[in-house]
């Protein structure tokens, strides 16, 4: 046992040292930085000016940060409902004994293996383009001129075009997680339910759903983390601008204020750190709420 302890120390120490250096130090530095006025992200500590919680106060009073939080909230809630519902539906269909299951699973998952920049470019240029896009051409061919004239990449439509494209690419990932959960449920339960006369819907509601609560919790956590870290899609929709009011998210705002943008040389790494901390808090709150709402059961898969 003594020997084992030494071994544990030997193997864990390097990892621990590197964890502290590579993760803990930046985390602590970021937390501290969020209470200071710091211009450049790598400025020496002796140039920092303590400002208390004013970075946080200013953030909450800034219209564009509020807008970015609302955008993020809309993506999380509306996109979350859509993605989770469609992913679960596909997962149930694909685990119901459908033919060519592997093929369909691969087709639905494909968007996940394509680079986000390529995916966004495809949607922007080939689907939403005001002159040559699929939607424009389709509505024009149907004689629906009003619909054909919609500009999906400007004004109020811009957010929804982004949300649709992002959700489309996200479904496959969560579908796979649901499939793995559903496939672990023993078939005996369904057979017994079928013998007892339960139809597919009842089997889904009374067997599948309760037994994949843990999977749902995992999906919610992953979804929250991916939405809080929403960055590339937002930038692609705003390009060549750095950001856009309809699609800006807190991380894009953070990037803008930490590094500046074209025409804007003002930088505020302290405020950027405050955004980062707030986002971490958001993830923790969601994780806490999901854990409270979805209780762990002894019987789950």
């Amino acid at each position: 046992m003594k020997q084992n302890k030494k071994m544990i120390v030997c193997f864990l120490t390097p990892a621990l040292i590197f964890f502290v250096l590579m993760f803990l130090y930046p985390i602590i530095r970021t937390i501290v930085m969020s209470f200071f006025k710091v211009e450049g992200v790598s400025d020496a500590v002796d140039t920092w000016q303590f400002v208390g919680i004013s970075n946080y106060q200013k953030l909450f009073a800034t219209s564009i940060f509020q807008i970015s939080m609302i955008n993020m909230g809309k993506i999380w809630l509306i996109g979350g409902i859509a993605v989770m519902a469609i992913a679960l539906l596909f997962a149930v269909i694909l685990t119901s004994g459908i033919r060519f299951k592997s093929f369909w699973r691969a087709v639905i998952y494909v968007p996940n293996i394509i680079n986000a920049v390529a995916m966004a470019t495809m949607w922007i240029q080939y689907v939403f383009n005001k002159r040559f896009g699929l939607l424009h051409s389709m509505f024009a061919a149907l004689g629906l001129e009003d619909l054909a004239g919609i500009d999906y990449m400007n004004g109020s439509w811009k957010f929804w075009s982004l949300l649709i494209a992002f959700c489309f690419g996200s479904v496959g990932y969560f579908m796979l997680i649901y499939i793995s959960g559903i496939e672990r449920i023993p078939q005996d339960y369904y057979e017994a339910a079928t013998i007892d006369g339960a139809n597919k819907l009842k089997q889904f509601i009374y067997i599948t759903l309760p037994l994949i609560k843990g999977v749902f919790k995992t999906c919610m956590t992953f979804w929250t983390v991916s939405v809080v870290g929403f960055f590339v899609w937002s930038q692609m929709w705003a390009a060549p601008q750095a950001s856009d009011m309809q699609t800006i998210t807190p991380f894009v705002y953070m990037y803008n204020i930490v590094f500046g943008t074209t025409g804007n040389v003002q930088r505020d790494a302290g405020m950027g750190a405050a955004v980062g901390i707030l986002m971490a808090v958001v993830v923790m709150i969601v994780f806490f709420i999901v854990n409270k709402c979805v209780k762990d059961d002894d019987l789950e898969f």
Binding site: S63, Q241, S243, Y253, N256, G260, G263, N264
Partner: peptide
């Protein structure tokens, strides 16, 4: 003049301004 007559110099305002200008252009 600066780029965009300086209308991009404030990260807190520029996106809101751009969005409103576009809505103005499209008569929204």
């Amino acid at each position: 003049y600066d780029w965009a007559v300086g209308l991009e110099t404030n990260a807190d305002i520029k996106d809101i301004l751009n969005d409103n200008i576009i809505k103005l252009c499209t008569s929204e």
